[in-house]
Computed example of a mutant assay.
Amino acid sequence: MKNVFKNVDWKKVGTFAGGFVFGTAGVKVLASDDAKKVYTQCTAAVLRAKECVMKTVNLVQENCEDILEGAKDINEERAQKAEAQAFEDEDFREVEEAAEETAEETAEETAE
């Protein structure tokens, strides 16, 4: 019978037994009322942090929406100015062409 215990690695058996004891004690500690109070306090702190983060996220989203609207307004104004400038350029060309035609007609009449 002594030969059976001779081949046993007592270090592994001791580690297993210690783990079992700590595991059993750990479960009791984790299920205790004091531990539950700690869990409750930690959960409350996480919820407060979440609320703070969500306020910040909402503020950033609102600012982004304001920035986007401002950018759209700027682009719209630039497009209107470009359109007005193109219209003025077209009118100027028409006036120039009319003036050139008049000058050519006048030159032809004086040449005759």
Rank of each mutant, 00 (worst) to 15 (best):
E96P: 00
N58F: 13
G70P: 09
C64Y: 04
C64Q: 12
Q61V: 05
M1T: 14
I67T: 11
E51Y: 04
E51S: 13
E69T: 14
A45Q: 06
N58C: 03
V38W: 04
A107R: 11
L68S: 14
E90L: 01
E94D: 14
E112G: 08
T43W: 07
I74P: 00
T110P: 00
A25V: 06
D34N: 12
V27K: 12
E65L: 14
R78Q: 12
N3M: 08
L47T: 12
G70S: 15
K6C: 03
E105M: 13
L68C: 07
S32D: 00
V4Y: 08
E83F: 05
E112K: 09
A111C: 06
N58L: 10
A25M: 05
K11R: 13
A31P: 06
E62M: 07
A44F: 07
K81G: 00
I67N: 10
G18Y: 03
A84Q: 15
V27G: 09
K36W: 05
E88N: 09
E83A: 01
E104A: 10
E109W: 03
V57D: 09
A45T: 08
A84M: 07
L68T: 07
N58P: 01
A25P: 00
F87Y: 10
S32Q: 01
V53P: 09
E65F: 13
D33K: 02
V8E: 00
T24K: 04
V60C: 04
Y39E: 06
W10A: 01
N63T: 08
K12M: 01
D33C: 02
A86W: 01
E88L: 08
T43R: 10
R93G: 01
R48W: 07
E51N: 12
R93V: 03
D91P: 00
T15D: 00
T102S: 11
C42L: 15
M1F: 08
R78I: 15
V38M: 00
A111W: 03
V13C: 02
Q80D: 06
K50D: 14
K11T: 08
A79Y: 11
D9S: 09
A49Y: 13
D33M: 05
Q41R: 03
K72V: 10
I67E: 02
A17G: 02
V8A: 04
A25C: 04
L59V: 13
Q80M: 13
V46R: 09
E101A: 11
V38E: 02
R78V: 15
Y39H: 10
V4T: 11
M1C: 09
